[in-house]
């Protein structure tokens, strides 16, 4: 920040909200086409068995789609630095929630004493209670 925090405001003499980048219709249309194509690829990729990589592929494509929406439709590409930081940091902190909960869950199988107390099942964790039976 410069010595005059308000300087950016005073520099605009025009009685407008400021100078705004206006995207071209052509660009919006290209983004839309890309999003639709990527949706097709998502469906296609889900039909092929890549094992555990399917999740990674699906999420990678979803992230690309999300980036397109954020950058172009939400106009973040031309937005101020602080607005970029604010929105992207929400994903960063969300990643922390994912990281630690999943680290806890997936490393429980390292604790051999837990598995001797609880009956391990093939999906690596226990079924604490019988499932509610379906009835007709």
């Amino acid at each position: 920040m410069t010595a005059h925090a308000h300087s950016d405001h005073h520099s605009h003499g025009a009685l407008q909200m400021g100078h705004h980048h206006v995207s071209s219709s052509q660009q919006f249309l290209s983004v839309l086409v890309a999003l639709l194509v990527l949706t097709g690829i998502t469906v296609g990729a889900s039909r092929i068995d890549f094992g555990s990589a399917n999740m990674l592929i699906a999420m990678a494509i979803a992230c690309i789609k999300a980036s397109l929406v954020i950058a172009f439709f939400m106009h973040v590409k031309w937005d101020t630095a602080i607005n970029k930081i604010v929105f992207l940091s929400s994903f960063l902190f969300l990643a922390l929630l994912f990281l630690f909960t999943l680290v806890d869950l997936t490393t429980r199988r390292w604790d051999s004493y837990v598995n001797t107390i609880r009956t391990p099942v093939d999906h690596g964790w226990v079924q604490p209670a019988p499932k509610p039976d379906a009835h007709h």
């Binding site: 605009h12 604010v86 994903f91 929630l97 994912f98």
Partner: peptide, 28 residues
């Protein structure tokens, strides 16, 4: 607010912060 730019940017920053809370709410 002193200027339209200030008003616009304040509202926009506020709204981005709100959208961040939505991301974390859904994130749960």
């Amino acid at each position: 607010f002193d200027t339209p730019v200030q008003e616009f940017q304040a509202a926009k920053l506020g709204f981005w912060l709100f959208l961040a809370t939505e991301i974390l709410l859904f994130g749960g």
